[in-house]
Amino acid sequence: MIAPRKLTVSVLAYSGALLFFVVPFLFIGLTAVKSRQQASLLDLSWPTQWQLWENLTAVIEARDYMMIQAFINSAIITVASVTLIVVFSAMVGFVLNRRKTSWNKMIGFLVLSGLMIPPAIVPTIWMLQQLGIFRTLHSMVLIEVAYNISFGIILYRAFFSTIPRDLDEAAIMDGAGPLTLFFKVMMPLLKPVTVTCIVVQSVVIFNDFVHPLYYLPGDDNVTIQLTLYNFQSMFNTAYNLLFMNILVITVPMLIVFLIFNRQIVSGMTSGAIKG
């Protein structure tokens, strides 16, 4: 039995979604596979000749395979900083939840500050220069850790309050030390929140444009978001290549979203509400 009202509302909702949320991506996808002349029209017409492969290789080969270098750099930064965020923020969340110290209030305040305060750009560059690590990939990793660890701490602190303390006591009775307790007993239990943390933070760090722009200048250190920025002026007469570039950096996100839909949604909304 089809309810006419339900059908009407659904059809209206889907037409709206199609117009506002599908057409822009359709535009990206179609323009990316067109020939240069057809792409310059900036319309939604069907490609007269499909140049998927030619455009893709052109984008990858541009500026001496800069895209490949950028993918490698972005992957290194994302993997390294997410790993550090997971371990370090779980450690903080663990002690913060289990031990009531006079530091707790202070740390809570710092965590909120980390979420709200815009980073002071030039003083940070000055700091990196003092440490002698400006323009290096590992300084970028440390920066991403510092800027995103607050969110991780909030996720882990909330999750630890769901793990009963009896478990800690049992492990301690069995002779576990602090490190065994944390890494061997607790870490495996954290899997759900860790998956959420990894996925959400990876998306954020992979998509980060502003901070690599400031802290990682130079062609050798280019990241994936910056290729697009660099190509924007270079490809300004070749829209097909520009949009192929957008497509190339969007597809990984689409794949991640299809696989981890639930974790992304729960992580982004729960972390947001706690924050």
Binding site: L84, F88, F94, V95, L110, G114, M127, P178
Partner: peptide, 15 residues
């Protein structure tokens, strides 16, 4: 308490 240390050092120095 030293579990706070790695996170605290990076946060302190970089932010």
């Amino acid at each position: 308490m030293w579990f706070f240390l790695p996170a605290g050092m990076i946060y302190g120095l970089m932010f």
